[in-house]
């Protein structure tokens, strides 16, 4: 009888330490939905870039020397809108599935763990986002895929300390992919689709089957 009391105490202590220091509402389905959105976005980008005939990696102004300047700007604007919409949709879906998980397990979705997680996640993320904009402003898209993947990976490694620790493995994978994308720059969009699409889906499914079924 004594044993069960101590055992229960220790379990309660462990659970409290977890719940009070880590954001546990992050759902595997958030990863799956973000991955699907990223794959769709990559497909649209591929279409906008004329099925790979336009290399988004090269200088935007030199894409098609014979075409009008406005065409280049339209393309750039469309790609930026696409990127922004992808980011917002992915965040919204992540929020939705986290909200569902929080409700199911009776976690609170907005508490000090949430704030800390978002803070740690967004510092590298915003740095990467601004740096990507600087690259675009300099008309150098060569390293865009690499930069977004690497900074996103760093953001995940950083945030992994404040949520399910498996997030750090996803982060490391994104960094490795980003470095590869930096070497093989002409395959940037493909690396981007693997990193933001396929890795998210795989990670999300693993987490879903491990924790939420």
């Amino acid at each position: 009888m004594e044993k069960s009391k101590e055992f229960k105490d220790l379990q309660e202590i462990k659970s409290l330490m977890e719940r009070s220091s880590r954001f546990l509402s992050l759902s595997g389905l958030s990863g799956v939905s973000a991955g699907i959105i990223a794959l769709i976005a990559a497909a649209i980008a591929y279409y906008l870039l004329d099925f790979g005939r336009i290399k988004y990696t090269t200088n935007f102004y030199l894409l098609r020397p014979m075409e009008e300047f406005s065409y280049q700007m339209d393309l750039l604007t469309n790609l930026l809108i696409l990127a922004f919409a992808t980011f917002v949709l992915a965040l919204a879906s992540a929020y939705y599935f986290s909200w569902r998980k929080a409700k199911k397990y009776n976690y609170s979705l907005w508490d000090h763990t949430t704030k800390r997680l978002l803070f740690q996640l967004f510092i590298p993320l915003i740095a990467g986002g601004v740096f990507a904009l600087i690259l675009i402003d300099r008309n150098d898209g060569t390293l865009l895929a690499a930069v977004t993947l690497i900074f996103y990976g760093l953001a995940l490694v950083n945030a992994g300390k404040y949520t399910l620790s498996e997030v750090q493995y996803l982060g490391i994978s994104e960094i490795v992919l980003g470095l590869l994308a930096g070497i093989f720059t002409c395959w940037g969009l493909l690396f981007w689709a693997i990193g933001f699409g396929i890795l998210h889906i795989i990670y999300g499914l693993v987490m879903y089957y491990r924790y939420e079924r």
Binding site: E12, K14, S20, H112
Partner: peptide
């Protein structure tokens, strides 16, 4: 139980306010 809980939370977090403790 409550004292165990308070200490558990404070072991892994720096300053924690009353309401957060109450909720947890």
């Amino acid at each position: 139980r409550v004292r165990l809980g308070i200490m558990s939370v404070l072991m892994v977090n720096d300053w924690v306010d009353f309401n957060t403790l109450k909720e947890l």
